[in-house]
Amino acid sequence: MARIISILVGLFFTVALLWSFGNGAYLAITEPAPATAEEEFHKHPKDVSFASDGPFGKFDRQQLQRGFQVYKEVCSACHSLRLVAFRDLQALGYSEPEVKAIAAGFQVPGIDPVTGEDALRPGMPTDYFPKPFANDVAARAANNNAIPPDLSLMTKARHDGSRYVYSLLTGYQAQPAELLKEFPDAKTPAGLHYNPYFANLNLAMAPPLSGEGQVSYEDGTKPTVDQMAKDIAAFLTWTAEPKLEKRKQTGWPVIGFLLFATVLGYMSYRTIWADKKKKKKV
């Protein structure tokens, strides 16, 4: 009797599950969910190219240095690079004395040798880039209750990351009239900023790149908003994948070896089994 009851209970739950699945599919087809402002007005990243793109792409060291300058003078006020050490900057073409000077320009957490208490000290090449805020509470208080994300892996954390960063930085604009006409309740709240390249269209970060001349490039490049956005996007591509060039350089010999090994294996197979196949036919 218990077995029959358990079978009936199992059948009941199976039928209920199939019915709910079928009913949900039917409702999704006959009564689709209304479109949202995010679905209608969210844009994919702009089509922009970088020197590191493609299977043979390489970093443009000068562009990376310009991008670092934008980070240091603009972005570092709110965003951290907790996975990048100052000594890593030598890969961008900076000399050891230059790296020491850059590190010394940052204050990092340390210990007072006299009192033993926590204190700030000038950075050293072995230190990592410090956080701009002491804690999350301070970060929220300074950024409209939003915590600025760490940028170390940003271009890997977002789809089409390099282009996403560039598009976001150059995508600030006024809300389109058609958006407010179609979705009256989607008006950007006070303190937020409309950007169609951001997932929910509104973000707490004000436009960080305000205009030409915000940064004075040491190589004489004209610092337009478009140029600064490309440079910082390229720099963040490097922070996320510092071994990108080496990976590509290693990949081609590996592919060549695998192709050679495949041909060699096939030829060996033909040589070893050729006589046996002939004997079978005989």
Rank of each mutant, 00 (worst) to 15 (best):
Y164Q: 11
K58H: 14
T239D: 05
G191T: 02
G22V: 03
G10I: 05
R82V: 07
N195P: 00
D150Y: 07
G191K: 04
A141V: 03
W252D: 03
L151K: 03
Q69E: 14
K46S: 13
K100A: 15
F235G: 01
V70K: 01
L151A: 03
K277C: 01
P184R: 09
V108H: 07
D118A: 15
T115R: 13
L203N: 08
D53M: 03
K281R: 13
T126P: 00
I7P: 01
F235L: 05
Y266V: 14
A104N: 07
L259M: 11
Q227D: 11
S152W: 01
A177E: 15
H42V: 05
V165Y: 00
I29L: 13
M228V: 00
G116R: 10
R3F: 13
E245L: 06
Q63I: 09
R82L: 04
K246I: 10
Y217R: 03
Q214W: 09
F260S: 12
T239F: 02
P122L: 08
D88C: 04
Q107T: 14
K246G: 06
K276Q: 08
M205D: 06
P97G: 10
N195I: 02
A206E: 14
G54Q: 02
E38C: 05
P149Y: 01
D53C: 02
P45Y: 07
I29R: 13
S95A: 15
K43H: 08
G116T: 11
V263C: 13
F21A: 15
L209F: 11
T237P: 00
L153A: 10
R82F: 01
F106I: 09
G211M: 09
T271F: 12
G10Y: 05
M154D: 00
F133N: 00
Q65D: 00
L192A: 07
F50V: 03
